[in-house]
Design a protein around this nucleic acid. Structure first.
Lengths: 80, 80
DNA sequence: TCAGACACGTGACCC
DNA sequence: TGGGTCACGTGTCTG
């Protein structure tokens, strides 16, 4: 188990504090970017039923498949 | 939810412990549902560039706007 | 080794 | 008033 050893070393590391603070900060930025994408998604998807993320993704998926269906029928018409 | 389980929870509830456990469980289910939607999104969006969630949302948004553009031009043609 | 990505439990908040 | 949702810091895995 290298994990136990790894943890021990990290604890003894004098810069361990900074590492953890930085880790928290990096994670915060990652979340911010993720939420930014969620908002961008809200902007391009019509008929948002609710505000929560799960519903948002659900609506987005529905909208995508709906458009794909539309496009498919148009392409078939075009072929005639 | 079985009655026995319900009673058990109610009993432990008085100690305040089960509520926290339940809270953790509920949150876990919420995350599971969210990831389920992410996977569903992966299934309907073509040309996934990378595997991470931020990129996935980015690709999904790009695909949506692209389709919207296509549909708009087709509709204009149809009007003629 | 190390940076990036994800899951977890917990506190706060809001109908 | 409590059940549902979010943001946070932290632990863990991986390439």
């Amino acid at each position: 188990m290298p994990e136990a050893e790894r943890q021990r070393r990290q604890k003894l590391n004098s810069s361990g504090r900074e590492e953890r603070l930085n880790h928290a900060e990096v994670e915060r930025q990652r979340r911010a970017k993720l939420n930014q994408q969620f908002n961008a998604l809200r902007a391009v998807v019509p008929n948002i039923s609710k505000k929560d993320k799960v519903s948002l993704l659900g609506d987005a998926i529905a909208h995508i498949t709906d458009m794909q269906k539309k496009i498919r029928t148009w392409k078939m018409r075009e072929q005639d």
